[in-house]
Simulated scan of single mutants.
Amino acid sequence: MIKPNKTLSVTVLGAGYLFLYLPIVLLVIYSFNESKLVTLWSGFSTKWYAALLEDDELISAAWLSIRIALLTATASVVVGTVAGFVLARFGRFRLFTLFSAMINAPLVMPEVIIGISMLLLFVQMGQLLGWPQGRGLMTIWIGHTTLCVSYVAIIVQSRVRELDMSLEEAAMDLGATPGKIFFAITLPLISQALVSGWLLSFTLSLDDLVLTAFLSGPGSTTLPLVVFSRVRLGLNPEMNALATLFISSVTIGVVAVNWYMRAAERKLAREMRMAFAAEAA
C-alpha cells in the first residue's frame, strides 16, 4: 500500500489555495492604491471608497441587485422546498419523470437558452395580456427564481431522504397532523439545507449576468451588467473597492451562517441525548 507523501500533499494543497485566493488578496490590497492605474502601487489611500459612495450608477445597480437577490433567494427556498419534498417523499407518481425533468432542466440547460426562451415568453405575454409592460425587476426576479429553484430542490431532496422517518411516525402516533409534523419536526431538521439553498440562490442571483442581460430593460441595470460594461473599457480602481466590500460582506455572512449551523447541530445533538436519557430512565 502506497502511503501518501505529507509534504507533497501540503504543497499541492497550498498551491491550490494560493491559486484561488492570491488574486482576491491582491484585489483587496490594490483597492487601497492611490494611483488610478490598478496595477501600479503609488501609496495607501481610501479615496476610491469615497469615490464609490459618490457613484450613483454603481450604488443604484448594487441596490437593485441586492433586492432581486433577496426576492429570488426567498422565493426559491419556498418553491424549491416544496419541489424537493415532493421528489423525496411522494415516490414515483404519475408524471414523476416529467416533473423531475422540469426541476432539473435549468441545471443542465445553458443560460443563453433559458434567457432567450423567457424573453420570447415575456414579449408574447406583453402582446397578448399587456403584462409585463417592459422588462425590469419583475422579469429578472422570475428568471432568477426559475434558475435557482432547481438548486434548492436538489439540496432539500438530498436532506429529506436522510431524515429518520421514525421521528415523524412517532409524532403521527401521538396524534399530530401532517401539517404540524412538517412545520414542527421536518422543517427544523432540514433548516440547514434551507439556509444553504438560500445562500446559494442569493449568490447565483447577485452574480448572474447572462440571464439578466436578456430580461433587463431600461432603468433596470444590475450590478454585474454595470461592472461588465465598465471593465470592457478598462480596469477602474472603484471596481476593486466595490469587490472588496462584497468580499468582506460575503466572508462575514459565511462565518455567521457557519457559526449558526454549528450551534444548531450542537443544540440538536444535546436535545437528542437528553431525549434518549429520559427514555432510558
Rank of each mutant, 00 (worst) to 15 (best):
S249G: 14
S76C: 09
A269F: 01
Q133D: 04
N240M: 08
N33Y: 12
L52H: 13
A15D: 00
A176N: 05
Y17M: 14
Y17P: 00
A176W: 01
F228T: 10
E57R: 13
T177Y: 07
G143V: 06
A275M: 04
P237E: 03
S220N: 01
V227F: 08
V25H: 11
I154D: 01
R273N: 04
P106T: 09
Q127A: 05
H144D: 06
L13P: 06
T177I: 12
V255M: 11
G14M: 12
A264R: 13
I247C: 07
P110H: 09
K47Y: 08
L98F: 13
A105L: 14
K3H: 15
F19A: 14
A105Y: 07
S158H: 05
L235V: 14
L189Q: 13
A69P: 02
V123T: 10
I66G: 00
C148G: 04
L215K: 02
I103A: 00
T222D: 08
V156L: 10
G179I: 13
G175D: 04
P4Y: 15
M172Q: 10
L98I: 15
S150I: 01
W63Y: 14
F96D: 15
A278R: 14
S158A: 15
M109Y: 02
S248K: 07
V86F: 06
I155N: 03
L107N: 07
I103M: 04
T212M: 00
R159W: 00
V123P: 02
S9N: 06
L70E: 02
N258Y: 07
E54K: 13
T145P: 01
A280F: 14
I140Q: 03
I114C: 02
L223R: 10
L174W: 09
I59P: 01
V226H: 04
L268M: 04
S220H: 03
A241E: 07
G43K: 11
A75S: 12
S220A: 11
A256L: 13
R273I: 15
